[in-house]
Design a protein around this nucleic acid. Structure first.
Length: 800
DNA sequence: TGAGCGTCAATTAGC
DNA sequence: TTGACGCTCA
């Protein structure tokens, strides 16, 4: 208590709920943190308090995230609060990095060398390919499929021996067999894949109670970020590490669970308090990011999701600009409209890197890119990785791994002829056959090159030369600092010289990438120096080169910062965790968002639709001030018979949005339709013909949006007394401002709206109340207007 | 050439 | 589940 007073600065900048989470003492804690509610701040402040106020040793705290970026940001903020010395001893890392660290310490127990290699996607794929080829039975199973199946097993911590099959399941038996061979190949190479980084620790901790109590005892506090993304293994690992004290704090948002398709189990967050009885639940519902309008729209979408923990974001921010809606005849015209709106946004002074265009599938980026390019708007496509995926970088990395473990066949095969030294496919095959016959690794077979049958003298010399090279690396390079080791590898292998001799632009770029790798390795060495010796007495470190390779394997890209001034294009998945001044959500159509999976079984429909809904919610809540939705009336499909168009109905999520949120342009359009209700054109919003009772029943008529609606949305309006105004009127650059001053309406309406009462709505005109639901500012009424039945917020109604 | 039938592929992506 | 494609047969 007095401790908090002694350090008021840690708590002053927190709201009540955040403070409750930070001050929570011992025992399980579940923080349900809505989008933009300051969840990282809670974790970081909680850790700072544990260390600064409660005297917990930093190395007794483990904080886990899902991405390196998140871990990096967290660490950075902890350095700010605790200083670099204390922060350096905290365990702040991804699940996988933790697994790697664990396995290096327990390498012997796991049957691994402490400098084991970590196989990434590409390595895994090549390994799976080889396992399939050696197994003979390639038939219908692609390496990708095999990996997918193995991955699903590993997500549930199942080894080849633990996969349960029905007696008739021949295909399952075959897959399990292949899985076993894949693991065997990994083991022979002394390597692990990403899945093993979690599965192996879980297995060791489960089997060995002594080990378990040692590890569970060492972490007095565990914290997990983005908890809704945890899969079964990760959750198991968490529980194994938690121990009796149960000091586990998980932070997440079930509304932002968008990765169930890759094994994340929303049940982990929904059932957390069941697994940890006595859990304290804190909800963070105050949003610091978005305008009220954006939050209201986002809530209209997410509140209809199935299984979820009810929570509703609120904000002290102003109502802000209305939503905008753009409609194009096809995806090209949609893109062009977006490009023009982006240009308008920039013209208003919003920096390019504060603007994002989000979409459901990567294929949607193409027309967007074309339109942005035509409009001369600089953009960048935000993707996961790139640098360490470059072929030349991977070649160098393979040599580095061989320096540590020459028996890694996969790496030998990769670089055997790189740079080209006259070892062709035939020679490789013969070498492989020889190694298999002798039961030794490819590297071992190299030293018997003269015994490999059928190899011509030139190829034999090449093989021997390569063997000598690898031997030299493993004897003289493995112990060096990473920077020198990389340089040494580039020199000895001739990778760099070969590129220098080429004189092409591409070769120059590749050489530059290799230079970049040297620089990264040097930087890494320096960071090790800066770290100093660990204060945690148990910490043991493998050689610098092994640690650098681990970094390469686990790190996608150094930083995911949007280059200055460029508009960011990315999928909705990639957008999670980010925020932008203005967000464009493209392709808001049924079939695109929600993405349509007609092949899916009926009983799975609801679940995936919920995930699509959450995806939409994630996208909308990225916006700070302006949110524009856009759709195409038809979208192109590919086929050999040329392009064919498919009519796209507006997204059902769009229909969940209260029309009032769209501002004056749409409202004016609605009134115009209403006026010509008997005219030839249909109303902009009409009753959904197929809607069941209780279902969303509004249908947006895309035809009504032939004009570009909302493109010239005004700058956010500064409201003086936001508390008194649930919503101020909307403005238009083209029209004199109209201020509806809703707050001046008779308060009486809020409470006593009787069935049958005559009411008036700004956009829909006069109508008769049919029913009411909810209370307070969220109270809604279904009203029969001239243009059909509508569910509207009562606060937008006045007595007729 | 066209109807009829069987087959196949249809998205998101972290470590 | 859909739609696109290839194959066969009339």
């Amino acid at each position: 208590m007095s401790a908090e007073e002694a350090r008021p600065d840690l708590l002053r900048e927190l709201n009540d709920a955040q403070r409750e989470a930070v001050l929570h003492g011992e025992g399980p804690l579940l923080v349900l943190a809505g989008a933009g509610s300051g969840k990282t701040r809670v974790i970081v402040h909680r850790i700072a308090r544990l260390v600064r106020e409660l005297g917990v040793f930093p190395w007794h705290i483990l904080a886990v995230t899902f991405t390196n970026k998140a871990a990096g940001e967290m660490r950075e903020r902890l350095v700010g609060l605790l200083g670099p010395v204390l922060a350096a001893d905290l365990w702040v890392q991804t699940f996988h990095a933790f697994g790697a660290r664990f396995l290096r310490r327990e390498a012997e127990r796991a049957g691994l060398s402490p400098s084991f290699a970590i196989y990434d996607d590409d390595d895994q794929l090549r390994l799976a390919r080889r396992v399939l080829a050696e197994g003979g039975a390639e038939e219908d199973l692609s390496p990708r499929d095999l990996l997918g199946r193995i991955d699903r097993w590993k997500n549930r911590a199942l080894g080849p021996g633990e996969v349960s099959l029905g007696p008739e399941d021949e295909e399952g038996r075959r897959d399990r067999d292949l899985y076993g061979r894949y693991q065997e190949a990994l083991r022979r190479a002394g390597a692990v894949d990403f899945g093993d980084l979690l599965v192996l620790p879980v297995r060791l901790l489960t089997e060995d109670s002594g080990l378990r109590s040692r590890w569970a005892g060492r972490f007095r506090h565990l914290l997990v970020d983005e908890f809704q993304d945890t899969n079964a293994v990760q959750y198991q690992l968490l529980r194994l590490l938690t121990g009796e004290k149960r000091n586990v704090c998980v932070v997440g948002d079930d509304d932002q669970a968008i990765y169930t398709w890759r094994g994340a189990e929303v049940g982990n967050i929904l059932g957390f308090d069941r697994d940890f009885p006595g859990t304290r639940i804190v909800k963070l519902e105050q949003n610091y990011r978005s305008t009220r309008t954006i939050l209201e729209a986002a809530y209209a979408v997410i509140s209809r999701a199935g299984r979820r923990r009810e929570k509703r974001l609120w904000t002290e921010n102003e109502a802000g600009a209305p939503l905008s809606l753009l409609v194009g005849d096809d995806e090209q015209l949609e893109s062009e409209r977006i490009a023009r709106a982006v240009a308008a946004e920039r013209a208003r002074g919003t920096p390019g890197d504060e603007i994002a265009v989000l979409y459901r599938t990567n294929a949607q980026s193409r027309p967007l890119e074309a339109a942005l390019r035509a409009a001369r708007i600089p953009y960048v496509i935000v993707r996961g990785t790139s640098f360490y995926e470059r072929a030349e970088v991977r070649d160098a990395a393979a040599y580095l791994r061989l320096a540590l473990s020459p028996d890694s066949d996969l790496d030998v095969e990769r670089v055997l002829n790189r740079p080209a030294r006259g070892i062709g496919e035939k020679t490789v095959e013969r070498l492989r056959a020889h190694a298999a016959a002798r039961g030794v690794s490819l590297f071992a077979a190299l030293s018997e090159a003269e015994a490999v049958s059928g190899v011509k003298p030139a190829a034999r010399r090449a093989l021997e030369g390569f063997g000598t090279l690898v031997k030299g690396l493993s004897e003289e390079v493995r112990g060096l600092d990473a920077g020198i080791a990389v340089q040494e590898v580039l020199k000895r292998t001739g990778l760099l010289d070969r590129l220098a001799a080429e004189h092409s632009d591409e070769a120059a770029e590749r050489a530059e990438n290799l230079a970049e790798l040297v620089a990264a390795a040097r930087e890494f060495d320096e960071s090790l120096l800066g770290e100093g010796p660990p204060r945690d007495p148990e910490e043991v470190q493998p050689p610098p080169l092994a640690r650098f390779l681990e970094r390469i394997a686990l790190l996608g890209e150094a930083d995911g910062e949007t280059p200055e001034g460029r508009v960011a294009l990315m999928t909705l998945h990639a957008a999670k965790g980010l925020e932008f001044e203005a967000v464009f959500l493209a392709g808001v159509e049924d079939g695109t968002l929600p993405y349509e999976r007609p092949w899916e079984a009926e009983e799975e429909r609801g679940e995936s639709l919920d995930e699509e809904r959450r995806l939409c919610y994630v996208g909308m809540t990225r916006a700070k001030h302006r949110l524009t939705l856009s759709l195409a009336r038809r979208r192109i499909g590919y086929g050999a018979g040329g392009p064919s168009y498919r009519e796209m109905p507006p997204s059902r999520f769009l229909q969940d949005l209260p029309p009032e949120l769209f501002g004056e342009e749409v409202a004016r359009e609605v009134r115009a339709r209403e006026a010509m209700a008997r005219g030839p054109r249909p109303p902009i919003i009409r009753r959904h013909p197929g809607a069941l009772p209780g279902e969303p029943h509004l249908e947006l008529d895309a035809d009504a949006f032939g004009v570009e609606l909302g493109e010239a949305a005004p700058a956010p309006q500064r409201s003086q007394d936001r508390a008194a105004r649930p919503r101020s009127g909307t403005t238009s650059l083209r029209e004199p401002r109209v201020d509806y001053s809703f707050d001046q309406r008779p308060e009486a309406l809020g409470g006593s709206l009787a069935r049958g009462a005559r009411v008036r709505h700004e956009a829909f005109g006069e109508g008769e109340v049919i029913s009411c639901e909810g209370s307070g500012p969220d109270r809604k009424a279904t009203v029969r207007f001239g243009i059909g039945d509508k569910r509207v917020l009562v606060r937008y109604l006045s007595p007729a």
